[in-house]
């Protein structure tokens, strides 16, 4: 694991927000590594799906200097509580021989709708360590199937062995308090009960960082993380 420069911290801003929540940004420190180009020549259908060069998603630094695809979630503080499994499914698409989204969260038992939008075949292969692994062929464009994970796990790696550049990560949690940083580096965990929590930020290349926070009734907390070299 890479040595992380741990940085902090929390601007604890009490706002007159409607409900309790934790939000913030993940900053990137240092110079962004040159994006690694992906060659899709092993499958002409994949190569034809992109007119622009495609890059590895293992580090994406946004234009505003923030880090994308960081999974931020409540690690401690919700023990003993149970949460309903959402009825709506998570969408997980294979499009242009890339996974969309690249990082996503799901609750234990929540249905994940896996789609193949490509006119080529994929095998969707879960490398879960705490749930049963699977490897399913999806040879037909438009094909959909549903899977779920039975145990919490940070993170379940998904990959395609037909197209070895394809990988994605699914954070599986027993509660709904998680978020993934967007193209502005923002995350937002909403409607969380008041209490003391440890939240963790996970990134596939830079590892994890944690912070302790207290959320009071009616309080919106701002937290920022900083990853980098």
């Amino acid at each position: 694991m890479k040595k992380l420069i741990l940085s902090l911290i929390a601007l604890l801003v009490t706002s007159s927000a409607y409900a309790n929540g934790i939000s913030g940004t993940v900053q990137f420190k240092g110079t962004a590594p040159a994006p690694e180009p992906l060659s899709m020549s092993a499958d002409p259908t994949c190569a034809a799906a992109h007119s622009e060069p495609v890059y590895s998603q293992s580090v994406i630094v946004n234009d505003n200097g923030t880090l994308r695809n960081v999974f931020v979630y409540v690690k401690e503080g919700l023990e003993g509580k149970t949460f309903e499994t959402p009825k709506e499914s998570i969408e997980f698409d294979q499009k242009g021989c890339m996974y969309t989204p690249h990082v996503v969260g799901a609750q234990v038992g929540q249905k994940i709708q896996i789609m193949n939008s490509d006119n080529t075949l994929h095998n969707v292969h879960s490398l879960a360590e705490k749930s049963k692994q699977f490897n399913l062929g999806m040879p037909i464009q438009g094909m959909k199937l549903f899977k779920q994970f039975d145990s919490p796990e940070i993170m379940v790696k998904m990959k395609c062995d037909v197209h070895p550049w394809m990988s994605a990560y699914i954070g599986v949690l027993p509660h709904p308090y998680f978020s993934v940083t967007d193209n502005q580096g923002n995350f937002s965990i909403e409607s969380i009960p008041a209490g003391d929590y440890v939240i963790e930020a996970w990134h596939e290349t830079y590892g994890t960082q944690t912070q302790s926070v207290s959320v009071a009734e009616g309080e919106q907390i701002k937290v920022s993380f900083e990853f980098g070299v």
């Binding site: 092993a42 499958d43 002409p44 080529t120 075949l121 062995d161 037909v162 197209h163 070895p164």
Partner: peptide
């Protein structure tokens, strides 16, 4: 099957 990507080897 179509011989693309990893399928070519396997």
């Amino acid at each position: 099957p179509p011989m693309v990507g990893g399928i070519r080897f396997e």
